[in-house]
Design a protein around this nucleic acid. Structure first.
Length: 573
RNA sequence: GGUCCUGUGGUGCAGUUUGGAGUGCACGCCGGCCUGUCAAGCCGGAGGUCGCGGGUUCAAAUCCCGUCAGGACCGCCA
């Protein structure tokens, strides 16, 4: 038996004359006299103005049930700023369901309180319209994703929360075993191995909206525990995965924006690196990297005698201060560059510390290559190709990137990632994605001769410069898997020790399969217009991994430690 | 592990550069007035470990060192 007949924000002129009951919190009280006062009552749908004869004892955030008659507001008294602005409740009977202390900060979207306090009193913070909107938006995303995958024949299967630690990837959160002292479960960083087992198990199409945990440092787009859409398909190739995920993401986007994104363009990893200096290019703005290596072949300028030279153009930044240029140079050095070459573009000359080492011809060609106009700024890096790409890519973002919620939604598939990324201390290639990623069929012959040039069938989905997620076609053939393990320096014994249960399973008939996973927190944040995933997580943690509300993490009682067979070392000093 | 920003009544900020009485603004809170407001208005009042510790100084919110907390980023996140 519900206490209300209607929700506050849903009443309208159509309800005039009805006697209704609404429940909610006192958002504002305007007390004119003993005879006339207004109370704005707020619930999850909005606020409605209630005319009461006295409101002196109705304080902020009191929980009320108000029964009254929906009344057309007198002419000139409407409030177009709120959805219920045409009406009000009159002849109100007010029932105080609960009193409340004054809130620690105002429950309004107009003022942004300190985040630590918001998190400590999250239950108050979440009352705000913006946070309510974010929670509901996220729910709609989950819903749309579930519906989309179900419609595409996927089965949601839950995988264990307590599983086993694997040495690859990020640092595990571990959970001590009470029944077997000295042994530990790990919280999943990814259901990777389980979903591949499900493919062997004939599930055919698996998906799951799954909570994961990675014990790494936090960022605006990273929490210790987070939520992913995880999916895997059997008897498919890369195209099928991209198509299924695109469908789900488009549906989720449409569910919250009302508009279905029409474009999911693709770019190869190599192109992305060359043009944007990033594997998650933000294509909302230009400032593409310009190749200058040929132009400066044979230059006198020592700084430009390098295997790779590229530049970016910062339009209109030609009056940049020396301080700012120095700051940018420092950044570049921190990122590993030897220096940053800069040129302020003037009407008839280039102005910069390297200009005097460049010939007239080189200066003209540089202007032309960059498409520079007077008043622009040219930034150039000369070094090894990977470094040049990375640093210019970061400079591009530093100088040109708009807030993540501006300029519309630009999805982008990045394909053909390299199979390996750099080498470890022993000189062996390291997997860019994970060791079960299928090499690109055209590159398999190069695996031993030139492993770092081998492309993989791995792909990322990027939205406005944020990596939403990644996936790959998996290796289902033992011979290729062994070759990969060999290159990684994992011998048969070690492979068995690390991934034995997966390799065992593969001996019982593994279908070709491929999959994907993407971060729902990130998708929700961008769709909500937030630049921070904490705003779409009900109870997030701070950058140091603490929860100001619950006090987590916290020490354990000695009794619990004893039960678990644990002894805590004194803190390092 | 590192770089940078922030910390001032319950909340949001100013004050810190150039040391001089806890100085100011807005909101909230408490009391009073007020019959059409909507971030109501008017009058009055309460409320402070200037994050914490140390140093310099006749004197520190302000300068210096350390530390804690929050945030952005680098490293890290297959």
């Amino acid at each position: 038996m519900t206490l209300r007949t209607d929700c506050c924000g849903e009443l309208s002129a159509a309800d005039v004359g009805r006697t209704v009951s609404v429940c909610g919190w006192v958002a504002s009280r305007r007390e004119h006299s003993e005879q006339l006062a207004f109370v704005d009552l707020r619930d999850h749908t909005g606020v409605v103005q209630c005319v009461v004869d006295h409101a002196h004892d109705l304080r902020s955030e009191y929980v009320l049930r108000i029964t009254g008659t929906v009344n057309q507001r007198p002419a000139g008294m409407e409030n177009p700023a709120i959805s219920t602005g045409e009406i009000e409740l009159k002849d109100c009977d007010v029932e105080v369901l609960n009193t409340a202390q004054p809130p620690p900060f105002p429950v309004t979207d107009r003022i942004e309180a300190d985040e630590n306090i918001r998190l400590k009193y999250r239950y108050v913070d979440l009352r705000r319209e913006r946070m309510q909107r974010n929670l509901r938006l996220r729910s709609r995303i989950n819903n749309a994703i579930r519906r989309s995958f179900e419609d595409q024949g996927f089965v949601e299967v839950e995988t264990p929360l307590l599983t086993v630690s694997t040495p690859e990837g990020s640092r595990d959160f571990v959970v001590p075993s009470r029944l077997r002292h000295g042994s530990f479960y790990a919280l999943p960083q990814s259901p990777q191995l389980f979903k591949q087992l499900l493919m062997v198990a004939g599930v055919d199409r698996y998906f799951q909206i799954v909570r994961l945990a990675r014990d790494e440092d936090l960022r605006a787009d990273r929490q210790l525990d987070f939520t992913q859409l995880d999916a895997e398909m059997a008897f498919v190739d890369q195209e099928d995965v991209l198509s299924a995920v695109t469908e789900a993401v488009a549906s989720a986007t449409e569910a919250v924006t009302g508009e279905r994104p029409s474009e999911f363009p693709r770019i190869s990893w190599e192109d992305a690196a060359e043009r944007y200096g990033s594997d998650k290019p933000d294509v909302r703005f230009g400032m593409e990297l310009v190749e200058l290596t040929e132009l400066f072949a044979g230059t006198e300028a020592k700084a430009f005698q390098a295997p790779c030279i590229k530049g970016i153009l910062a339009a209109g930044e030609g009056d940049i201060s020396r301080n700012r240029v120095d700051a940018l140079t420092d950044m570049c050095k921190q990122w590993g560059a030897k220096g940053l070459a800069w040129f302020r573009v003037r009407a008839n000359e280039l102005e910069g510390q390297l200009t005097k080492f460049l010939s007239e011809d080189e200066q003209i060609k540089l202007r032309q290559a960059m498409g520079a106009n007077p008043g622009d700024l040219i930034l150039v890096i000369a070094d090894e190709r990977p470094l040049v790409r990375t640093i210019l890519g970061r400079l591009r973002v530093e100088l040109g990137r708009p807030p993540v919620y501006e300029g519309g939604l630009h999805y982008l598939w990045v394909t053909d990632f390299p199979l390996f990324e750099g080498v470890d201390d022993a000189g062996r290639p390291m997997p860019a994605h994970h060791p079960f990623t299928m090499p690109h069929p055209d590159d398999i012959e190069k695996m031993e001769s030139d492993p770092l040039s081998v492309r993989s069938q791995a792909y990322d989905l990027v939205l406005n410069g944020w990596e939403l997620g990644s996936g790959s076609v998996r290796i289902h053939r033992a011979d290729i898997q062994q070759k990969i393990f060999g290159l990684l320096g994992i011998d048969a014994e070690r492979a068995q020790e690390r991934f034995g249960f997966l390799l065992d399973a593969f001996r019982y008939g593994a279908p070709p399969h491929a999959g994907f996973a993407f971060g729902i927190d990130r998708l929700a944040a961008i769709l909500a217009g937030e630049d921070n995933i904490r705003e779409v997580i009900a109870f997030p943690k701070t950058q140091s991994g603490a929860d100001p509300l619950t006090g987590a993490p916290a020490p354990l009682d000695q009794k619990q430690l004893d039960e678990l067979g644990l002894r805590v070392l004194p803190p390092k000093s």
